[in-house]
Amino acid sequence: MQYRVQGIVIRTMDYGEGNKIITLFTREIGKIAVIVRGAKKVKSRYSSVAQLFTCGDYLFFKSGQLGTLNHAEIIESNYRIREDLHKSAYAAYIAELTDRLLGDQEAHAFLYEQLAAALQALAEDKDMQIVTHIYEMKIWMQAGYQPELQHCVSCGADSAIIAFSSGMGGVVCGRCRGKDADASDLSPGMLNLIRLFARMDIRRLGQINVKAETKDALKQLMRSYFDTHVGIPMKSRNFLEQMDKYGV
Rank of each mutant, 00 (worst) to 15 (best):
A116R: 14
E148F: 12
E83C: 03
V36W: 00
S63H: 13
F110E: 15
Q51I: 06
F53G: 06
Q129N: 10
F60N: 00
G103C: 12
K43V: 13
T98S: 07
Y58C: 08
K31V: 01
D125S: 13
L85R: 11
Y90P: 08
G38H: 11
Q105I: 13
I32L: 04
S44L: 12
A91E: 11
P147D: 10
K87F: 03
I75G: 04
V153A: 12
A123E: 13
K43L: 11
I81N: 03
L149K: 01
A89C: 04
E124H: 10
A50E: 05
G67P: 02
A91Y: 09
V153P: 06
Q120L: 12
E76W: 05
R100G: 00
H108M: 10
S47H: 14
H133G: 02
Q105T: 14
M141P: 00
Q150N: 12
I94G: 00
D127W: 14
G64I: 07
D84I: 10
L101R: 03
A116Q: 12
I29N: 08
A107P: 11
F110Y: 14
A89Y: 04
E148P: 07
A143H: 00
D99P: 04
F53R: 07
G103H: 13
T68K: 05
E28A: 05
I130Q: 11
S88A: 14
A143Y: 00
H86W: 15
H133E: 15
A72Q: 04
H108R: 05
E83S: 15
M137W: 05
I134T: 13
D125W: 11
H108A: 06
D158F: 02
Q105P: 08
I139M: 00
R82H: 10
I29M: 11
S44I: 15
A121V: 04
E148K: 11
V36T: 06
L149C: 07
C152T: 04
A39R: 12
A50F: 00
H133W: 12
K31D: 05
A157F: 02
A89W: 07
E106K: 06
S48E: 12
H108W: 14
D125C: 07
Q146N: 11
G56P: 12
Y112E: 01
N70D: 13
L97W: 02
C155R: 06
V131N: 01
Q146I: 05
L115Y: 05
L122M: 05
L85M: 14
G64Y: 13
E106M: 05
E113Y: 12
L69G: 00
D104C: 10
E113W: 08
L24V: 06
A33S: 15
V153S: 04
I162K: 08
G64L: 09
V131P: 02
T54V: 15
V131S: 00
K62Y: 09
I94P: 03
N78W: 08
E148V: 14
A123P: 01
Y46N: 12
A109P: 15
V34R: 00
D57I: 07
K87N: 03
L149R: 00
L149Y: 02
H133A: 02
A163T: 02
A123Q: 08
I139A: 00
S63C: 01
G144A: 04
Q105L: 13
W140P: 08
A123N: 04
G30Q: 11
